[in-house]
Each structure stands twice: as structure tokens, then as C-alpha cells.
Amino acid sequence: MTDSADLDAWASELSEALGIGELVVPVSVVLDLARDAAHSVARPAAPLTTFLVGFAAARRGGTAADIAAAAAIASQLALRRLP
């Protein structure tokens, strides 16, 4: 299993390389969202969902609240597909 510190370090390293180093990545929110999409929709929905949520959050302003709001919408939509 991947250590959460490894994921935090990766998110930090990648953010810096992408020129968004000031971004604090809510890793657990992203992973929970990916899980909901993968289990409720289909496995390939996980990366697609996280990308779309990130894009939507950025368009809203990119704050932690924007990320949480977009993730909540996507999780709720995905979880509605469960029987």
C-alpha cells in the first residue's frame, strides 16, 4: 500500500513541476472521489472524474472550498449509480 506521505510528496513535487507549487492538494478528497467514481461508475471513470473536478474547481477559483464543492457534487452523482 502507498504511504500517504509518499502521495503528499508526489503531489508537492508534481505541483511544483507544473508551476502550481502554491496549491495545497487535498489528497484524501481526491482519493475518495476516485474511489467513488471507480466503484459506482467504472474504473476508468476515476481519472476522468478527478480531472473534471479539478478543472471545475479551477474555473470556480481554485480554493480548497472550490475543490471540496466540486468533489462533493461528483461523489454524490457517482454514488447515485449504486443499486
Score class of each variant (00 low, 15 high):
Phe51Asp: 00
Ala70Cys: 06
Leu14Val: 15
Pro47Trp: 02
Gly61Ala: 05
His39Thr: 13
Leu14Ser: 05
Gly19His: 04
Ala57Val: 04
Pro44Ile: 12
Ala68Trp: 01
Ser28Ile: 05
Leu7Asp: 02
Ser75Asn: 05
Phe51Glu: 01
Gln76Cys: 08
Gly62Met: 04
Ala72Ser: 07
Val29Lys: 08
Asp6Arg: 12
Thr2Ser: 14
Thr2Phe: 11
Asp6Gln: 14
Asp66Thr: 04
Leu23Ile: 11
Ala68Gln: 07
Leu52Trp: 05
Asp36Met: 00
Gly61Cys: 10
His39Glu: 14
Phe51Lys: 04
Ser4Leu: 15
Ser75Val: 08
Leu79Asp: 10
Ser40Arg: 03
Leu31Val: 11
Ala64Ile: 12
Ala58Thr: 10
Pro47Met: 02
Arg80Phe: 06
Ala42Gly: 10
Ala58Tyr: 05
Ala65Arg: 08
Arg35Gly: 07
Glu16Ala: 15
Leu52Ser: 09
Arg80Val: 07
Ala78Asp: 12
Ser15Pro: 00
Ile67Phe: 06
Ala68Leu: 07
Gly21Gln: 08
Asp32Val: 01
Glu16Trp: 08
Phe55Tyr: 12
Ser12Val: 04
Leu18Ile: 01
Leu77Thr: 15
Gly21Pro: 00
Leu48Met: 10
Asp3Asn: 06
Val24Asn: 15
Ala65Phe: 06
Asp66Tyr: 03
Ser75Phe: 00
Ala57Phe: 04
Ala11Ile: 09
Asp3Gln: 02
Thr49His: 03
Ser75Ala: 12
Asp8Ala: 14
Ser15Cys: 02
Met1Ala: 14
Glu16Arg: 15
Ile73Lys: 09
Leu31Thr: 11
Ser12Phe: 09
Leu52Arg: 14
Gly19Pro: 00
Asp32Ile: 00
Thr50Val: 11
Gly21Arg: 10
Ala74Tyr: 11
Val27Asn: 02
His39Lys: 11
Glu16Asp: 15
Val24Cys: 13
Thr2Cys: 07
Arg80Cys: 08
